[in-house]
Every structure is written in structure tokens, then in C-alpha cells.
């Protein structure tokens, strides 16, 4: 672990990122918006229901909304942070020198990935106090919150490594950005569309038949999986429709870990040219 964190690329990039005032203003505004949102919600629901009460059900709604906002943040910011990591070095002509140093390809890729998602991790963690406001009102357990953060982390790693992978195999940052965003859109919107399509087709055609395909689309869609984590009854509903009782998060973890490992492996093997022409 110390080996991993004593990574020259990681150290340098983090130093550069946090030297930049932009990072802090970004963080500040994020917390400000989150804070206003939470307090506004509490204040408004309290005044609507009268008597200044904030009930557990309302607390749960707030929690759900916050969770989706953060998921959206992860899905939309991660591609932008990672899809340029290698290709901008190529465009700025600093990559050649970096590749002739004694760092292993894994070290370089890993350092790039971690340093670029570090900012988002910080964003998520710094929002934790505001987020945990909802504990005060009940309706959500700390355990549930931990699970959701693990889910965020996995999603972040998978999309992030996908961005780094595209950045490694394409020559230009623009192309890499487009590819990463497209994949992200595919994983969220397109899978959602297919899910609705397969579900409605199967129920129309066969009444209460099973539909493994819908299960697949549901299990790789971050929004659906997040919902199933927030509201476990969704799992039952999904297994009733699809006939597969494996919880969604298990398949999700498997798929996104695979995505993460595959992208990482591809980036590492494509970063440098293969000098051995006989292999």
C-alpha cells in the first residue's frame, strides 16, 4: 500500500491540483449548494406539514434526493476528470519523457487514475456532515449510508478507469471525452431505456413470464441499483418481473469490478509500445 501511495505521478498531480484555487472554490460552492438544499428542504417540508416537524419519511425522501444528486455528480464529473489524463500529456508532449522514466506502466496509470478521482472523493467525503444531517431525523441507518458510499466508490473507479483507458488508447482528448461520456450515457440512459422496453415487452407478451434480459439491463444501470439499495423492496419487484432473485448489487459489483479491472489492464498494456516484435 505504501508502495502504491508513494507514487510520483500521484504526488505531483495532487500537489498541482490543490495548489490551484479553483479546486477550493469548487469545493466551497459544492458544500454551499448542498447545505442550502438540505436546509431549504427541511425548512420547506417543516412549514408545509405544519408544526415544524420533520418526519422520518421526509428524511428518507431527502436522503434519496441527495443520493441521486451525488450519483449524478459522479457520473458527469468523472469523465471530465479522467478522459484527458494521458492524452493531454501526449498533446502537451510530456508523455514521451514520462514513458522513458523508470516508473512502471501500472504506476503511471494508477497514479493518474487516483489523482484525478481524488478531487471527487474529497467532494463526496466533505459532503458527509451535511449528508448525515438526515440521521438526526431517522429513516436512514449509517450502515445503509456506508453501503451507498461503497457503491459510489465502485462506480467512480469503474467510470474513472474507463476514462483513463480511452485517454490512453485514443490520440486526442476530445475523442476520449466523447467516448467516455458516450459510454456513461449508455450505462445510464440507454440501459434504462432497454430496461423499460424489455420489461414492457415481456409483460405484454407473456403476462407474468420471466425476463433475464431485463435483469441484465437493470443490474448495470447505476440509478436502478442505487434505488434498490435505498429501497430494498425494489429488489423483490425486480426478481418478480425477471425471475432472477440474485440481488442487483451483486451483479452490479461484479460487472463494474470487471469494467474497472479490464479498463485498467487495457490502459497499462497500451500505455507503452511493445518493444518485443517477436511476441
Amino acid at each position: 500500500m505504501r508502495e502504491l501511495l508513494a507514487n510520483p505521478v500521484l504526488v505531483k498531480e495532487i500537489k498541482l491540483r490543490f495548489r490551484n484555487m479553483k479546486s477550493f472554490t469548487g469545493l466551497f460552492f459544492y458544500l454551499l449548494v448542498m447545505g442550502i438544499f438540505v436546509f431549504g428542504f427541511v425548512y420547506l417540508t417543516g412549514s408545509i406539514s405544519g408544526g415544524g416537524f420533520f418526519r422520518p419519511e421526509e428524511s428518507f425522501i431527502l436522503f434519496t434526493m441527495l443520493s441521486f444528486i451525488q450519483l449524478g455528480l459522479i457520473l458527469f464529473i468523472t469523465p471530465g476528470l479522467t478522459a484527458g489524463t494521458i492524452s493531454t500529456e501526449r498533446e502537451k508532449q510530456t508523455l514521451n519523457i514520462l514513458l522513458t522514466t523508470a516508473q512502471s506502466s501500472f504506476q503511471i496509470i494508477f497514479g493518474k487514475l487516483l489523482s484525478s478521482i481524488a478531487f471527487l472523493l474529497l467532494l463526496l467525503l466533505s459532503g458527509l456532515p451535511i449528508y448525515s444531517m438526515v440521521f438526526l431525523y431517522g429513516g436512514v441507518s449509517p450502515g445503509q449510508m456506508a453501503v451507498i458510499f461503497l457503491f459510489y466508490f465502485l462506480t467512480l473507479l469503474a467510470i474513472g478507469s474507463l476514462g483513463v483507458m480511452y485517454s490512453t488508447v485514443t490520440r486526442r482528448t476530445v475523442v476520449s471525452m466523447i467516448a467516455t461520456f458516450s459510454t456513461m450515457i449508455f450505462l445510464t440512459a440507454v440501459t434504462g431505456f432497454f430496461l423499460i422496453l424489455t420489461v414492457s415487452l415481456s409483460s405484454v407478451a407473456m403476462g407474468t413470464g420471466t425476463s433475464p434480459l431485463s435483469y441484465f439491463w437493470a443490474s448495470i444501470n447505476p440509478a436502478v441499483v442505487l434505488m434498490s439499495l435505498l429501497e430494498p423492496s425494489w429488489n423483490d419487484e425486480i426478481s418478480r418481473i425477471t425471475g432472477i432473485s440474485l440481488p442487483l448489487w451483486v451483479s452490479y459489483s461484479f460487472f463494474y469490478l470487471l469494467l474497472f479491472a479490464g479498463s485498467l489492464w487495457l490502459s497499462v498494456s497500451k500505455l507503452r509500445v511493445n518493444m518485443n516484435k517477436y511476441r
Binding site: 510520483p8 505521478v9 504526488v11 505531483k12 495548489r19 508532449q93 522513458t100 522514466t101
Partner: peptide, 29 residues
């Protein structure tokens, strides 16, 4: 790579890095 010091014909440098930090980064590399 450990045996050679290579200077390309065209190269860039990182922004916002001081000369000392620049060398420090490659030293760490």
C-alpha cells in the same frame, strides 16, 4: 530506461511546476 537519459527533439513541460519540483518529480520517477 534506467541506463539512458533521453532528451526528445520536441518536448513540453508541466504548467504550474517550479524548476525544483520539476526535477524532483523526475527524480522520484
Amino acid at each position: 530506461r534506467r541506463q539512458i537519459g533521453y532528451m526528445p527533439d520536441f518536448f513540453g513541460v508541466y504548467d504550474q511546476l517550479r524548476a525544483e519540483e520539476y526535477l524532483d518529480f523526475y527524480g522520484a520517477s
